[in-house]
Each structure stands twice: as C-alpha cells, then as structure tokens.
Design a protein around this nucleic acid. Structure first.
Lengths: 199, 199
DNA sequence: CCGCCGTTTGGACGAATGTCAAGATTTTCT
DNA sequence: AGAAAATCTTGACATTCGTCCAAACGGCGG
C-alpha cells in the first residue's frame, strides 16, 4: 500500500489525524480520550484511524512525537538578542509565561502524557526525548545568562530544568485553577531563579 | 443504615476499600483503574464498592483525601533536631530521597492524580489541599534553614515548593526509568537548593 | 429459634471501548 | 475510459465499563 504518491500523502494524513488527536487529548486528557472521540475531532470516521495506525498505542506515541516536533520548533527560536543578564531573564520569563498563557491546555496535555509514560512503557522513550530537548532549551538560557553575567552556572543542566519545570508546572496548576496572579508569579519566579543558578 | 455500631464500622470499611483502591491506582494509574480491578485488590466483590461509595468519582476523591491523611502524618514528624543549616539540608535531602526510594509508586500515583485534577474538577479542591500541605512542609524546612543560617528566605513559599517539587518529580521520572543516580542526584540537588533560597 | 437489619454476593443492564473486515468511494495510472 | 490501487465508511465483534438490583449471608435482640 501507499507506494504511489511520492510526496507522501500517507504521512500527511497521519499528521493530520495526530493533530486532531492532540486536540482531543488537550481537551479531555488521556484517560477520557477514546478513538471515537478522536475521530469526532476530524472529518473522518472512526474506522479510518486503524487504517493509518495499527492500534491506539501507536497513535498516541505518534502524537507524542508530533508534539515534540512542534515543541522544539517553537522553542529553538531563542533568546539571541539580550545584552544584559537581566534582559535575558526577563525575555525568558516572558516567553515561558506567554507559552503558558497562550496554550495552557497543550501544556496540561504534556504533563498528562509525561505522567502516562510512567505507567505505559511504550511512551517512555519518546517522552524522555522531549524532556531532554526541553532540558537543553533551559540550559541554553542558563548558560547564556551566566555568560552575560560573566560567571558560570552552579548547577547541572538536569537540576536547572527540574527547577524551571517545577515553577512552570505549578504555575499551570494555579492558572487553570483560575488564579489571576499565576502568570505574573511565574514571570517573577523565573526572573529570580536565574541569579540563583550562577555564582 | 449503618446507625448501629458506634465505633463506626462503616467508615472503617470505607477506609479499607480506599486503601485497596490506592494500591490499584499506584499499580495501574488512574486511566487503567476500573472499579472491578479495585475490587480485585480487596477480598470483596465489585458490587460492594457501590454500597460504600455512590460512584467512582466519590471513591477516588475519598482516596485522595485518604492519601493526604497518610501524607501529612508522614511529613509532620519534622526536622526538629538540626543544629546547623547544613545538617538540616542534609536531613531534608535524605528524607525526600528516602520517601522517593521507599514508595516510588505512591508518588507516581500522586502526580497522576494531581494531573487528573486538571481535567476532573471534582478532584481539584482535595488535590489543591494536599498541595498546600506539601508547600507548608517545604516552607517549614526553608524557614528553619534560614533561621539556622541567620538569614531570611528570598522567595515565596509557593516558589520554594515549586522548586523542590520540580527536583522531586524529575527524580521520580528518572528513578522509575532505571537511572541509578536519580536518588543521589536528588539528594545533591536538594542540598544545593537550600542556600539558593536565602540571602 | 425466628426475624430483622446491615452487609455482601453475583449477575444483569446498557453504553462505551478497541479492533476488525467487507464493501463503497475516490484517486491514480495506463 | 477502464482497471487497479489507495482511501474511506459502515456495521459488527467481543470485552469491559459504571451502575443497579434481587437474593443470600450473618450476627444479634426478641
């Protein structure tokens, strides 16, 4: 099958279905998302999903990989133009807060999938890969901050990511709970975190 | 019903069933835990669950509250006897690492339930309550550390908790992924975090 | 000993789930 | 245009889900 079209329409449709599945996952969460509800987010019928994906696990793992693609693309455009450490911290804080504010449900889905990977080994590798790319993104910022400050980071990349991620996740929790100050608190928390990580 | 026995046997059985449900949730995760699989973790049949709980949501929320009870009881026995800030940091780091090492599946379940609360509003209040008690626990440690160090915390209780929780969750991720150094890294990360939070 | 009441069982229900296959439809190639 | 391949729909299947209920169990007071 699918040998004909060189510009692979097959992969295009897979991506389209996976994007719809990501919307469903963001809406309902993994535990409440069935193949039929995913199909309802598309213009196709539920049977089609098994034409493009062997089973539910393959669909979800494909979704995770797709999320990663969008994720790294979003964050690779970086913090290039910051002249002072303070500017960089503010830029990073604003970026994270904006990301949370613009697509809270997508980040809720990410944390849901990451937690699912603790129970479903099939998700583990892809999730770990995303986590690593996020860690690298954070580390680039911390390194750049230290460079601008004329000092060096005093923690490992893993610890830096864990600390930023903790702030971000807690902000997501509170933002979705309706706390108005969640985003501002995240901005302040991130800004203040940078100087704590260099000497 | 259930007016007879003064020493309320009804509540006892509810607790017993909830504890079994917590084991099931720790084993399988919320998404894969059905009322029947919960019943299989007990010596009773599945029908009994609806005699003690109106529906699945009430059972799970009761589980969350029960988890909180065990949780605060575990952590309230505190860090009383530390003479120097260094000792306190080490004690706290060891405590967190031990908690993770002894019951990783319970903590996996906690993060699962906390994520579920983002999708199921019925869980939100109870989860938020647990989060607050954990935040207070962290804050007591940070305050005590600052006191022993003759200084004052430079961050809010919420930020302190977010940072510690980030380290803890990342350590859980890696510990369950089989990384041998996860617990030691957590210990080191926690130890180094304390001095970053005071001036 | 009987009858009562709280407790427990086991089966039934309708709905929803993942999966699959047969057929209809559309696209592509000659 | 017509055949062949790729795509999509539809309905069915066996399970499993949450929920409910009639009947059985068990101890205790009469």
């Amino acid at each position: 099958m699918r040998r004909r079209t060189p510009a692979d329409k097959f992969e295009d449709r897979r991506r389209e279905l996976a994007d719809a599945a990501l919307l469903a996952l963001a809406d309902l969460g993994y535990a409440r998302t069935s193949l039929r509800t995913i199909a309802e987010h598309t213009k196709f019928s539920h049977g089609l999903l098994h034409y493009y994906f062997a089973d539910k696990v393959e669909l979800i793992t494909y979704c995770v990989r797709r999320y990663k693609a969008a994720c790294v693309q979003r964050y690779e455009g970086g913090v290039g133009d910051a002249a002072t450490p303070g500017e960089l911290a503010v830029a990073c804080a604003d970026g994270l807060a904006a990301a949370l504010g613009e697509a809270p449900l997508m980040h809720r889905m990410w944390y849901d999938l990451r937690t699912q990977s603790l129970f479903e080994p099939a998700f583990r590798d892809d999730v770990a890969e995303i986590d690593e790319s996020l860690r690298d993104m954070i580390w680039r910022n911390v390194s750049a901050y230290a460079g601008l400050a004329g000092s060096r980071p005093t923690c490992s990349p893993a610890d830096a990511y864990a600390l930023f991620d903790g702030l971000f996740q807690q902000a997501l929790l509170r933002h979705l709970a309706g706390e108005e100050t969640a985003l501002d608190d995240l901005r302040r928390g991130v800004r203040e975190l940078f100087p704590r990580l260099v000497d």
